[in-house]
Write a protein that binds this DNA or RNA. Structure first.
Length: 353
DNA sequence: AAGCCGGGGTA
DNA sequence: TACCCAGGCTT
């Protein structure tokens, strides 16, 4: 570290030195391949390391390589992802892996244009795979990087705006060492996870404290700046559990939108007598007449990032009818409930039965 | 640019 | 309760 480097605000060697000592030992940092980097990066989107760990291990046991994942069914892929959230990640990963298997002979593309065309891979993930798996000098600007750079350079603007992200990407490119881009990007993630954390940054132990403009001006607690979010709506959901010959009547959600393609008990948005009527209509449409037990089995509150479900669970009885042939409706033997991907809180209802 | 899309840890 | 997390897709 020369005086000239300091003057030019070159700090990456300090960060790399810190990383060489404090590097976290993580499952996806062993046996690195483009595939393992890819899977881990998708799982880690908006998700904490500790939440990913068990999913990553179990995923790699079941789908150790591109071919095994390409050969799997959508239900099995979603089942492996069940509980991790943001299920389009799993669907897109599966689709993209099939694409790599069929169009690229099972080899993950090593150029940005091609890799960006794959489903579920955006600017961040493309940069992460190219830098970590292929050693290419690409930035990987995620939430950690936005937070760290907004503090280092005292950027008092909304870090979620496209303009700030572009500005910070340029600053990253300026700093990124061409001979160790993967280490640099990973070092930023580790720094962001352990030291330059959102609420009370641990500046006393930060290797970059002497380079940090926010710390120098006492603004480290005010930065980064994010736009406030709106209040989230509450939806009343009426659910009915119908059991016949030790099987449950289940519905598969549409293949887009919330909890796409996952299985749930029959339900409608609504409550009370009107909700019960709507529920009967839905089931009449597929050929069943039902009625309900008077007392609800229980209630359940489930919080998503953008809405809340307040669920009331009823027990229903089949009065008459035959199931029309509908792909979205199936009778599932109760003892096979672990074989399907459950839609969020509906999986919890199985434990009540 | 803004909304949609999960679930869990944390203060 | 509110915030935030190794973001991407759709409108």
């Amino acid at each position: 570290m020369t005086q000239k480097d300091f003057d030019n605000k070159i700090w990456y060697p300090v960060l790399l030195d810190w990383f060489s000592v404090h590097r976290r030992a993580l499952p996806w940092r062993e046996n690195r391949t483009p595939y393992t980097v890819w899977v881990s990066e998708i799982m880690l989107q908006q998700t904490k390391v500790e939440a990913v760990r068990p999913y990553y291990d179990s995923w790699m046991e079941r789908f150790p390589d591109i071919k095994s994942l390409a050969d799997a069914s959508q239900d099995e892929v979603l089942r492996q992802w069940q509980g991790l959230g943001y299920y389009s990640r799993a669907r897109n990963l599966h689709e993209a892996v099939c694409e790599v298997q069929s169009q690229y002979k099972g080899i993950v593309p090593d150029n940005k244009d091609a890799i960006l065309k794959l489903k579920g891979i955006g600017e961040y993930t493309a940069g992460a795979i190219l830098s970590i798996a292929y050693g290419q000098p690409e930035a990987a600007v995620d939430g950690n990087v936005l937070r760290i750079f907004s503090r280092l350079y005292n950027i008092e603007e909304n870090i979620l705006s496209a303009a700030v992200k572009k500005k910070i990407t340029a600053l990253v490119q300026e700093q990124l060492p061409k001979d160790a881009p993967g280490d640099f990007n990973e070092a930023l993630m580790d720094l962001g996870a352990s030291i330059c954390i959102p609420k009370h940054p641990r500046c006393q132990v930060c290797p970059l404290i002497s380079f940090c403009l926010a710390k120098a001006t006492g603004k480290e607690a005010q930065i980064p700046i994010r736009t406030v979010k709106k209040n989230i709506p509450i939806e009343e959901i009426l659910v009915v559990v119908i059991e016949q010959d030790t099987s449950w009547l289940l519905h598969r959600r549409p293949d887009t939108g919330l909890l796409a393609s996952m299985w749930e008990f029959p339900n409608v948005e609504g409550e009370g007598a009107e909700g019960r009527r709507k529920l009967q209509e839905v089931l009449a449409d597929i050929g069943y007449q039902i009625n309900f037990e008077d007392t609800p089995q229980g209630t359940l509150r489930h919080v998503f990032s953008h809405k809340i479900w307040h669920m009331t669970v009823l027990k229903g009885r089949l009065v008459s009818g035959n199931l029309k042939t509908e792909e979205e409706w199936q009778w599932l033997p109760k003892n096979r409930y672990t074989e399907i991907p459950w839609a969020g809180p509906h999986g919890k209802i199985t434990a009540w039965q």
